[in-house]
Design a protein around this nucleic acid. Structure first.
Length: 400
DNA sequence: TCTGGGGTCCTAGGACCC
DNA sequence: TCTGGGGTCCTAGGACCC
């Protein structure tokens, strides 16, 4: 038995979000090939307008190539603060319809609207209304997919782009899925796509005809089972509004590979401050410090250390990160990227063992710096600095 | 064409405990 | 002296997503 409410899951996806936010304050960018992204040699496209996509430009593409494809390309540097502000307004719109909103990024969310049965004609009407409110009140275009499950709704919004709505009825779901390329499935990236191509599988329909055991042999049992479920349209995952943060990290690809300890130490200091600040702002602390090192030849290594108790202090994160990076070989060949992350997160006031952070002065210093940064931006104040990275007694610190 | 930055999840081996 | 199986935690790497 189907009725107008058989497909109560919406996936709302903002169209070329960063670009459209820029166009709100710079209307002269409308109708032109625009991308948002860094201008540096090593930067990539973060968002591409539909005009630029006609030249073959896509997000994640190296900026040098994008420029070559479209010499008249307008490149706008990213302003994540502004995108964050607009993202909040977009999510306020979502939550004005239902509390069952699951954000999956700044510009994308699932909504379960089953509870609106008594208030609206059907989910498709709600989808149209959301699009229209986003357009009139926030000034941004969005595409909406309406389906019975999350993953079909997501595929539907993709099919609706740009600036459209697509409804996949339960009755037509298997035909809709069967025709899709496997690459469209959630969980099929480059590697899995290549493995499936080896089996002669190109569409979702072909995937569901492969014997499960054969698929398991090639992809591993977990991924194979997952994909078979999706291919057959089964996706029982509910829309879950609040998920907890698992990790917080900061990384940077340098314009020129770092060659010396001094350069690496300086970079780690900045990254540690960035991570520490964000972790504290989230009211969290972490027990595991992770570092990521990408060498000149692009090999990427990670090292991690789990502490007895959680920390959120810049100096402690910094000191451990330095030690971890030291354990990596071949640093002298040049370091392309450094990253620091904190995981095994807990509430900040969880009991902690005696550590550097137990010295209240560190906490006070970090909080003071945080307050200044929140008000005046990151440039307002540099990293708190110890005379030597291995000196953690707090005896000599200076802010500069 | 030489490949960002923020995340999540999975796998697999080894340590350690019972 | 030689041997077991399970559970949990930690570490490193990799695939994937936007």
């Amino acid at each position: 038995v189907t009725d107008r409410w058989s497909e109560p899951i919406l996936h709302v996806d903002m169209d070329a979000f960063f670009v459209e936010v820029e166009r709100l304050r710079r209307p002269e960018l409308r109708g032109r090939p625009v991308v948002v992204g860094g201008a540096g040699e090593r930067s990539v496209v973060a968002a591409a307008s539909y005009e630029s996509r006609r030249f073959g430009i896509r997000s994640a593409m190296p900026m040098t190539r994008a420029r070559r494809l479209c010499p008249d390309l307008v490149i706008v540097p990213p302003d994540h603060r502004e995108y964050g502000r607009l993202s909040e307004r977009v999510f306020e719109v979502f939550r004005s319809f239902t509390p069952l909103v699951e954000g999956i990024s700044v510009d994308e969310a699932f909504l379960d609207v089953a509870g609106l049965r008594l208030h609206r004609p059907d989910p498709v009407a709600i989808g149209h209304e959301i699009r229209s409110v986003l357009r009139s009140q926030v000034g941004l275009p969005a595409s909406v997919g309406v389906a019975a499950t999350k993953f079909v709704a997501k595929l539907a919004s993709e099919a609706a782009k740009p600036d459209g709505l697509r409804h996949v009825l339960l009755a037509e779901q298997s035909a809709f899925l069967a025709a899709l390329p496997v690459r469209a499935l959630w969980g099929v990236g480059e590697a899995t796509f290549a493995a499936l191509a080896g089996l002669g599988v190109e569409t979702v329909g072909e995937l569901s005809r492969v014997p499960r055991r054969r698929l398991q042999a090639v992809l591993g049992p977990s991924l194979a089972d997952h994909l078979v479920e999706l291919a057959d349209g089964r996706d029982p995952r509910p829309v879950t509004p609040d998920h907890e943060i698992k990790s917080i990290s900061a990384e940077e690809t340098f314009e020129r590979d770092l060659a010396t300890v001094e350069e690496r130490t300086e970079a780690l200091r900045v990254l540690a401050d960035r991570v520490g600040h964000r972790v504290r702002r989230a009211g969290l602390a972490g027990r595991t410090v992770n570092v990521k090192v990408r060498l000149a030849d692009f090999t990427t290594l990670t090292r991690s250390e789990t502490l007895a108790g959680p920390t959120s202090a810049d100096v402690e994160i910094f000191r451990i990160a330095c030690r971890l990076v030291d354990r990596v070989d071949r640093l002298d060949r040049g370091v392309r990227l450094l990253g620091i992350g904190l995981s095994s997160l807990e509430g900040r006031d969880a009991p902690r063992q005696l550590s550097v952070e137990a010295d209240p002065r560190w906490r006070e210093l970090d909080e003071t710096v945080d307050a200044v940064r929140d008000r005046f931006g990151r440039q307002a104040i540099g990293p708190a600095r110890l005379s030597r990275p291995d000196r953690v007694d707090g005896g000599r610190w200076g802010i500069h």
